[in-house]
Design a protein around this nucleic acid. Structure first.
Lengths: 118, 118
DNA sequence: CTGTATCCCCTTTGATACTG
DNA sequence: CAGTATCAAAGGGGATACAG
């Protein structure tokens, strides 16, 4: 684990794509199971169509997400995780759980910090 | 683990601050041990003084990072992780290791994707 | 050395409208 | 439903200069 720190290395690029604002949330949501586009959009509160589409394309390109098109009317597209995507999502869920469990601690830290600096 | 998806919840805010471009790398670096400002800046390739300073302030405010000032000449400031920071860094290291080990797989996926879409 | 302040660019993002 | 196209706005982020 030394290459992540290098500017243009593949793992750092991947880390930035996954860690991007919507990447984490999309992966966490898909960790719950497959989603259709608009269902996923509703699950990830606040994401625009454009950003979700863009995020999913990136994740698909990186081999973390599978896009399955059913050419029915109306069209139906399902997104799900690949094997690698599952592993990444598991890791992210660990982080998310940790943070959810530490909300109080972080909130206290923030108050202390703000009080100190005035 | 359902609150992360809500727009203004504390855990999602934290997730975004930590997951920000430089947040992940700073935490990974500090996971290796304490660093002084400029040493950290050298470790995290490409970060500007401004962004590193800003990132560290946020992480300190959230209670993930400790800032210790030694009023010597020249001044000496050491950054290290708090208990919570260690936990977060461990989680991130797991993710980083996973990604470093999957670079080939992701690269192959990308080539397949690009070839398909032309 | 360890930052903060200022200026400025330009990429990311969001709204809106439109297509298959 | 599932997106893409376009445009405008905001803010992330770099360079530089300066302060403690």
């Amino acid at each position: 684990m030394t290459t992540v720190f290098a500017r243009h290395c593949a793992s750092r690029t991947a880390l930035e794509e996954i860690g991007s604002k919507w990447g984490i949330l999309a992966l966490l949501a898909l960790g719950e199971g497959a989603y259709r586009f608009n269902a996923l959009r509703r699950r990830v509160d606040g994401v625009s169509e454009r950003m979700l589409s863009q995020t999913l394309q990136t994740l698909e390109r990186d081999g973390l997400v599978t896009r399955e098109v059913h050419s029915t009317i109306p069209p139906r597209v399902e997104y799900s995780l690949t094997g690698l995507g599952e592993k990444v999502a598991d890791s992210l869920r660990g982080l998310a759980d940790l943070l959810e469990g530490s909300v109080a601690e972080m909130s206290a830290a923030r108050e202390r910090y703000d009080a100190r600096g005035d």
